[in-house]
Write a protein that binds this DNA or RNA. Sequence first.
DNA 1: TTCTAGCACTCTCTTTAAAAGACTGCTAAT
DNA 2: ATTAGCAGTCTTTTAAAGAGAGTGCTAGAA
Lengths: 341, 341
Amino acid sequence: MTLKDRALKVLGELIDIYTKTGQPVGSKALADLESLNVSSATIRAVMADLEKEGLLISPHTSAGRIPTEEGYRIYTQGVLQVSEPNAAIKKQLESISAEATDMEGLIKEASNKLGEMTACTGLVLAPKKADEPIDELQFIRLGSGNVLAVLVYEKGHIENRLMEVPNDIDKQQLKTAAQELTALTKGKTLTEARELIVQGLREQKRAFDEYVATQLFDIDELEETTGKELIVAGSQNLFGYPELVREKLKSLFHVFEEKKLLIGLLDEVKKGPGVQIFIGADCPIEGAEDCAMITANYTNADGQAGTLAVIGPMRMDYQQNVALVDYTAKVLSQVMANKHS
Amino acid sequence: MTLKDRALKVLGELIDIYTKTGQPVGSKALADLESLNVSSATIRAVMADLEKEGLLISPHTSAGRIPTEEGYRIYTQGVLQVSEPNAAIKKQLESISAEATDMEGLIKEASNKLGEMTACTGLVLAPKKADEPIDELQFIRLGSGNVLAVLVYEKGHIENRLMEVPNDIDKQQLKTAAQELTALTKGKTLTEARELIVQGLREQKRAFDEYVATQLFDIDELEETTGKELIVAGSQNLFGYPELVREKLKSLFHVFEEKKLLIGLLDEVKKGPGVQIFIGADCPIEGAEDCAMITANYTNADGQAGTLAVIGPMRMDYQQNVALVDYTAKVLSQVMANKHS
DNA sequence: TTCTAGCACTCTCTTTAAAAGACTGCTAAT
DNA sequence: ATTAGCAGTCTTTTAAAGAGAGTGCTAGAA
């Protein structure tokens, strides 16, 4: 079922106009375009075909037509041509490296920029540390039964956690425990380490080590930590689209508040390649069934992947936004490659 | 300018009804109440007085009346009687201690409960660590020029920060630096320490110590850390109030997204005593000029104060919500007093 | 064939008018 | 001091008519 070139062109132009106005588009408006050098009657015929194919729909007899979800899909797959953002936008995006100092500032800034420039909501999910190989473990005694466990990753990142330990553990025991655990986990990722350790230690009946390791590699704790690393920016932009009625906005903001809900979903996205476009029902986010999402992955200095996304109404400027998301991912990868934080 | 008891009673009943319906209230509806045993004509006379005082206003001739901001103020100051929440609610609130393990979980849960039970947005601001006295400093060398600085507070809390140091610093130097800095800052708060240290070290021309201290006590870093400790929950509830039109919601959600904006404002609140009620223009939050906010402070195990708040439309159930906020603050203080974490 | 001009037709949106409904303020009586 | 009753005012609802927008069809031109 291939559509004629002209039909696709009409679809594209219609989406362009509809994106800007939010109003149904009639045959006359399209016929007035220079790029389509035919009469409105011909356009009408083409539009009737497109409607038969399920790519357009008419809200009622005397309105123009608007694209269906399927229409947007065909458009983004076939009509849209990916381009680079223009120079001004590029420059803006590149400035994120200048304005941010640390990792968190960086993704925050990227998210801000995305939200601002697309007039949609920007999301940036930081790379998951849990997938990085561990280098070593250290314990630091802090008095009153508290020990600070420092987890050093091969690439130099650090994570730490406060633990309570029985008072009768002495300095030497701690040191030994650290050494043993390091030996066991060196080179493993946190997720791998967890299973390995709990199991291994149980067999060896090393109660203290097991106790420590369980606390240290606690997955829930971990998720809570990683949970902080999703930045949502520009959510208010969505108020600018009348078709996103209160009820829709409500469910979207619910998801934005419960970041945990989003993290899992975006993780799925990470498996896909390059820039991905999710339209309407495709959109893996609950409450975003009438929205569209554009995602891309980036990598940090250690090759760990993070995800960034833009969520907005279906009638968004795909051309621009795809270019933006793509380019931002590249900039972010590059900045992170240079900065070791 | 004291008002008659009956006038206050009318004001109170009117607000009660308006809170539930969101519609202007007429004299007949009030006359039907058992508690006001007078005719609608009398009510009309009273309402006319209240309008003259600026406590009520009529949207147009043939509508009933609604309270003005000033009306709400008089109501909350004079008419409202503070009560305890009922048993069921108490029980619900007390369960927050059971459902949360750590500090962050606790304030998150409290915020959730507040939002849920008030049908408004719950805010909880964690106590500020920057105001706690420091106990000691430790440095841990991590290889490749990185050092982990661990800041131990007197009460056992910990904060840590990764720093880069010149490669030619040896173990002994680090140890000395830690000891000296500890000596200087012990018992001081982080904010105090910062000034003290930078100044003191500059005089002594101890370049390395100064370098380290500057990084360690960096105020911006610090703010970013504390910035994480504001939890917003139930923001979607606000969609349920038609009088909060899109534009209002937009600015509110903008503030919710930029938590930093809120933190400073809530800090101001902390200076006040007990439960505070901010109505309309009183509300220190940008974009919340048509809203009301109820706040209370709580204290953690170390006596540090945190703030919790409820933001919603002006027509909220003050009676219930004041009781809720007050009680939640008490529960939170109590839970934190027991749990040291 | 393919395209176009023109026209009848169908809906929606806007305007206008009329009627209904909701409260109030005032007055005169209790 | 309170109340019943009523005239007056403004909004909301309902109905009808007209304007506007866009379509689908058909018959003729390219």
